[in-house]
Design a protein around this nucleic acid. Structure first.
Length: 547
RNA sequence: GGCCCCGUCGUCUAGCCAGGUCUAGGACACAGGGUUUUCAUCCCUGCAACACGGGUUCGAAUCCCGUCGGGGUCACCA
């Protein structure tokens, strides 16, 4: 049975690259009827954010990615599955046990050099333009020396003694990759704080959790020979590896969260008259913190960055899956689009629902080339999926979108919301739908001067609008069909096109030239409000005539 | 810089492993046209690529070598 695992380090929101890795693991598991596992790699005490595990879980669930073993979504401190716990910070006894085996067998040894001493060696290697290899001592420090070093306050780590042989890594996407032993240093497997490093914890856990397929980013390829050597020393299996290509961003380089900070920084610097105190306040930063951000010394947390961007009204590139959620993308589109970054079904299919993705998925079809994340194509996918998703599900997406954005539309009833969705067919994002229908929830209409000039201040426009008002006022049933019919009759009677009647109404009820179909818009607005807004517009027009 | 990976339209990709069916297919974007009560949507048409140089072969996008270009990695981060 195939067992895959997604093993994020909980440092913040799940970003799009992590989502892609998780998705490929999940697709393989679901395609093959195997298992998907979620493991939290929280062995670095300095970097873990307390809430990050919950965030990662939320983001995965939003995408529709679930797991058979791992933290319980309802309560991440509990586990589902028989190989837990799935938080590495809770597995230290296990790592210690295997570490001892290695130490006893002479396959690992204590290292009592300070980081500073090692830095000197590293610098020397760099000056000589050689790969840095930690010089393994002829005799390993014994217990007494280790105790003495500790007493002196030196940091003590444990290193793995690499075997004296070249290693060939067999990879599903890269083929066989050879590594010379002269290039791989004895690496640290236990840090001075007693925690295992990633390399060690991951090898132990993959064995114990019976993981068969390791799918991860290409950035891990260079680590793999070390992992393989570790597996051999411990008598473990070597899982099947698949090192995926990397998703790069427009600027080149890995798609990373730093990009949002960079964009924000550019925006702040671009505004000569920026009110720095206000910006700092918006981002819940002190003025000093903001200054050091501008000086490039620190980088604020993602939510603070988002808050400042909103304050400045600058659009930040979406990097984290939550960014896409907040900007009105739906998970079906995200999953489909991301799956096609580095994978394809081989025929010309592109727009596919998840079930089809699962059915078609094949690890052997991952490609080797890095790909650029094209937001325009994503938008196009979103348009398609907005059309394809079942109405009930879409309504659910829409409601959570409105809620997270504190939209005035969030309080509307389901029937209204469903209708908004229906009449906004063709929109690219939920944000566009919200915007297009915002007039329904406005207390006061603000006229766009251009729209007024272009449609209302035309000969006969006011007269036609008044006549339309009268006709609408007489209507008994107020629904799309009836309204449409009434407007058509007006057109025929006055011998004008649809635009001559519809546009003035549109401007009257929305203040702009943009809205869903006019009859749909009026039906949803309601008769009373429609008439009121037309009246207001008419009096606005007669006033501006006089002045 | 050392090591590793990669190189097909602007972008995502199919084709490469099993050389001819490739005057290189699809999608997004772009340009032009059409439908439409606005914005979108939708429909049609067009533009556009085998990084370069050597081999091997009757024949190369496909196999080999080199050059150039891009990316990754060189942590007590994962």
């Amino acid at each position: 049975m195939i067992v895959t695992r997604f093993a994020p380090s909980p440092t913040g929101y799940l970003h799009i690259g992590g989502a892609r890795t998780a998705l490929f693991c999940w697709l393989l598991a679901r395609h093959s009827g195997g298992k998907m596992l979620l493991r939290i790699e929280d062995t670095d005490q300095k970097r873990n954010t307390p809430t990050a595990t919950a965030q990662v879980i939320n983001d995965l669930l939003w995408l529709g990615i679930d797991w058979d073993e791992g933290p319980d979504p309802a309560d991440p401190s509990k586990s589902i599955g028989e190989h837990g716990p799935y938080l590495q910070s809770q597995r230290r006894d296990i790592y210690d046990e295997y570490l001892k085996k290695l130490l006893d067998a002479g396959r690992a040894y204590y290292c009592i050099d300070t980081p500073e001493e090692i830095q000197v060696l590293r610098q020397k290697a760099q000056d000589e333009k050689k790969t840095f290899l930690y010089p393994r001592p002829g005799r390993f420090p014994d217990a007494e020396e280790v105790a003495k070093a500790r007493a002196e306050g030196r940091s003590v780590t444990v290193r793995f003694a690499m075997p004296d042989e070249d290693i060939v890594v067999s990879d599903v996407v890269r083929g066989e990759v050879k590594f010379s032993i002269d290039e791989i240093s004895d690496f640290i497997i236990q840090k001075s704080d007693g925690f295992p490093t990633y390399h060690f914890a991951c090898v132990v856990d993959d064995e114990l959790m019976k993981v068969t397929h390791v799918i991860r980013g290409q950035e891990h390829l260079m680590n793999t020979p070390g992992h393989v050597a570790l597996q051999r020393a411990l008598g473990f299996r070597t899982p099947t590896y698949a090192h995926m290509s990397v998703t790069v961003s427009e600027g080149g380089g890995k798609l990373s969260k730093r990009e949002r900070a960079k964009t924000l920084l550019k925006a702040i610097k671009g505004q000569a008259d920026a009110d720095l105190d206000a910006i700092a306040a918006a981002g819940s930063l002190s003025r000093d913190e903001l200054d050091s951000f501008i000086a490039g010394k620190i980088s604020p947390d993602q939510p603070n960055i988002s808050a400042m961007a909103e304050f400045l009204q600058v659009h930040l590139p979406e990097i984290n899956v939550i960014d896409f959620f907040q900007n009105g993308y739906i998970p079906e589109a995200m999953v489909n689009f991301v799956a096609l970054l580095g994978w394809s079904p081989g025929d010309n299919r592109e727009i596919m629902p998840v079930a089809e993705l699962i059915e078609a998925f094949d690890l052997n079809r991952l490609n080797k080339t890095n790909s650029l994340f094209d937001r325009q194509k994503l938008a196009s996918f979103n348009t398609e999926h907005l059309r394809m998703v079942e109405p009930d599900k879409l309504l659910g997406h829409f409601k959570s979108y409105l809620k997270v954005n504190d939209s005035p539309a969030a309080d509307a009833d389901d029937a209204t919301l469903a209708q908004m969705l229906k009449i906004s067919e063709g929109a690219r994002t939920l944000a566009q739908i919200e915007e297009k229908c915002a007039f329904l929830f406005a207390d006061e209409i603000e006229f766009d001067p251009k729209a007024v000039q272009k449609v209302l201040q035309k000969p006969n426009a006011a007269e036609l609008l008044a006549e339309t008002r009268a006709a609408l006022a007489e209507m008994e049933s107020w629904d799309e069909g009836a309204i449409h019919e009434a407007i058509e009759q007006l057109c025929a009677k006055n011998e004008v096109g649809m635009g001559k009647i519809a546009q003035p109404i549109r401007v009257a009820i929305t203040g702009s030239t943009i809205s869903p179909g006019i009859a749909d818009s009026l039906a949803l607005l309601g008769k009373e409000k429609t008439l009121k807004r037309i009246d207001d517009t008419l009096s606005f027009l007669s006033q501006s005539d006089k002045s």
